[in-house]
């Protein structure tokens, strides 16, 4: 059994005392090696969770533990070495004038020795298939390429968890798929945990666990299959389920045609095949 890598214990957060709570009594655990998707309507508190994990924001009440350390002023730099984050807009994240310099930035900040730095830059750019672009200017790259460089910057610091905060939202479907494939491959290779904060319903089908946020509270915590059974509930809080889940739920409305909630077309076709063969 893997251990809890990130833990929220009764966390409350608001921007100031006269403002409403952004997070209300939020508790959950994310285990090492896991892929956890956090979904929720706009303004449900998803992104706040990401910013609390690496200490960009501080909770008013409650405790956040990352790799056994409580997140506070004394531990924040150590925690940021363990937690890599990629945000939505790649253009807001570049500091270097070349791809290589940009990836080097995080390493320089941590005082990594030069030879080691060069090795890590090469490796991480290779991992995201951007090695050929190391001398290019970041702003000349496509959106998907920019996000891959941002991910390389995160990989270079060898984090134990990668958080993608709507990191694929501005990409086209192809770019989105490339990024998710890259990150997921790295996750299994490097045995790190992955937290994706997303609106993309199809993306959550690949996660091990889903945390559904609603108005600052954890609304549901379950596997994708379990989440997809709750179509009506999700719709009442501004979310939805993917096409395959919707059709399966509709097919099951009068009689149990589908025995196991399908995650993809293949599984739904199998279920239909069984239904069609029995009679």
């Amino acid at each position: 059994m893997s251990r809890a890598y990130i833990e929220f214990r009764n966390v409350f957060f608001r921007y100031s005392e006269d403002q409403p709570w952004v997070l209300k009594d939020v508790s959950f655990r994310i285990f090492s090696d896991q892929w956890v998707a956090i979904i929720g309507h706009n303004g449900s508190g998803k992104s706040t969770i990401a910013k609390l994990i690496n200490g960009l924001l501080t909770p008013e009440k409650g405790e956040i533990i990352v790799d056994g350390l409580p997140v506070n002023e004394d531990t924040i730099w150590e925690i940021r070495r363990k937690v890599g984050m990629v945000f939505q807009n790649p253009d807001n994240q570049f500091v270097g004038t070349t791809v290589r310099d940009d990836v080097a930035f995080g390493l320089e900040n941590r005082g990594v020795e030069r030879r080691e730095m060069i090795r890590r830059i090469d490796e991480s750019l290779k991992a995201v298939a951007m090695a050929d672009y190391r001398l290019q200017e970041p702003h000349r790259l496509s959106g998907g390429q920019k996000q891959r460089v941002a991910i390389a910057g995160v990989l270079a610091i060898s984090p134990q968890v990668i958080i993608l905060d709507e990191a694929t939202a501005m990409l086209d479907p192809k770019g989105r798929k490339e990024i998710m494939d890259t990150v997921n491959e790295l996750r299994t290779q490097e045995r790190i945990s992955l937290v994706t904060i997303t609106h993309d319903l199809n993306e959550i089908t690949q996660a091990d666990q889903v945390i559904v946020m609603n108005q600052g509270e954890v609304y549901l915590e379950a596997t994708p299959r379990e989440v997809f059974l709750e179509e009506t509930l999700l719709q009442t809080i501004g979310l939805d389920v993917p096409f395959v889940a919707k059709l399966a739920n509709e097919l099951n409305k009068d009689g149990n045609i589908i025995s196991k909630q399908p995650l993809n077309q293949e599984e739904l076709l199998e279920e239909l095949w069984t239904y069609h063969s029995i009679k």
């Binding site: 929720g40 309507h41 706009n42 609106h199 319903l201 501004g238 939805d240």
Partner: peptide
């Protein structure tokens, strides 16, 4: 609809 939640998109 980029960046909106599913209900907002619809």
């Amino acid at each position: 609809t980029a960046g909106l939640d599913p209900k907002g998109q619809q």
